[in-house]
């Protein structure tokens, strides 16, 4: 079982866009070394919730605590500085750049010559190769090709490597990581997530695939219509129960 003290706790989060209430009084806790899956139908508020967690949106009401300290983030880059990052479904890769350039996009390594700083492509390449191999156990077909020529799983590994390169990364949000992948690559991605969990990261996984959720998660948070319906331990529940919670059948019955 994961450590009992949550690294992140969100309390009473509400978010309104004009007249539309996307989230209402939602709580979320995630502990280090744990995979928390968030499931729910389309429009249940999953994406809004993680966008608040990653600093993209600011909550209308509610508070976020990290290690018991109140947290306020005004942008995604502030969240990254605090050690909260996300891997998006679209991966946010620049397909024409090589994998190393993508991995360091926005935080390039540099060297300087006579006080003049420029990009250190060689070191970025070596570091990228090292991080991919050591932390994710992935070896790319080639480090010199444009990222677009890699397979879906390898592209994903690059995107994940970008997030985990920051050594102070503590919370990783993964938005539909397996949605565009085939069975083999899905399995490989799930293995990656396991590796990251072993390293003590807190992982928030959003997925429509209950197969993946049951394969990897420790706890499942079910959302419906902007509310948190329930949080269940994966080992003590069943697909039927979770499915019932998602569609609201359990409540009606």
């Amino acid at each position: 079982m994961p450590a009992a003290t949550p690294i992140i706790s969100m309390r009473g989060i509400s978010k309104r866009f004009g007249g539309v209430t996307a989230l209402q009084e939602v709580d979320l806790d995630v502990c280090p070394g744990e995979v928390l899956a968030i499931v729910g139908d389309n429009g249940a508020g999953k994406s809004t919730l993680i966008k608040i967690l990653t600093g993209v949106y600011q909550p209308t009401e509610g508070a976020i605590e990290m290690d018991g300290q109140a947290l306020s983030m005004n942008s995604h880059s502030e969240a990254i500085e605090l050690g909260i990052d996300a891997v998006y479904q679209t991966l946010a890769l620049a397909d024409h750049l090589d994998p190393a350039a993508n991995m360091f996009l926005g935080s390039e390594l540099t060297k300087s010559f006579l006080g003049f700083r420029y990009l250190d492509n060689g070191r970025m390449r070596v570091e990228a190769e090292r991080v991919l191999l050591e932390r994710l156990g992935v070896r790319l077909r080639s480090m010199d090709v444009p990222t677009e020529s890699l397979s879906g799983g390898q592209r994903q590994a690059v995107a994940i490597a970008r997030a985990v390169y920051h050594s102070d990364l503590r919370v990783l949000v993964m938005d539909e990581p397996t949605a565009a992948l085939g069975p083999q690559e899905t399995a490989r991605t799930l293995k990656l997530i396991e590796v990251l969990r072993e390293e003590g990261l807190a992982i928030v996984l959003i997925s429509h695939s209950l197969d993946d959720v049951f394969a990897i998660s420790d706890r499942i948070q079910v959302m419906r219509r902007g509310r948190r319906v329930d949080v269940v331990h994966t080992r003590q529940t069943s697909r039927q129960e979770v499915l019932g919670l998602i569609v609201g059948a359990a409540e009606a019955a």
């Binding site: 990254i80 991966l91 620049a94 397909d95 750049l97 996009l105 926005g106």
Partner: peptide, 12 residues
């Protein structure tokens, strides 16, 4: 040029 949204998301 390759992916404006991605560039934005990585903080460029």
């Amino acid at each position: 040029g390759s992916n404006p949204e991605a560039a934005e998301m990585t903080g460029i």
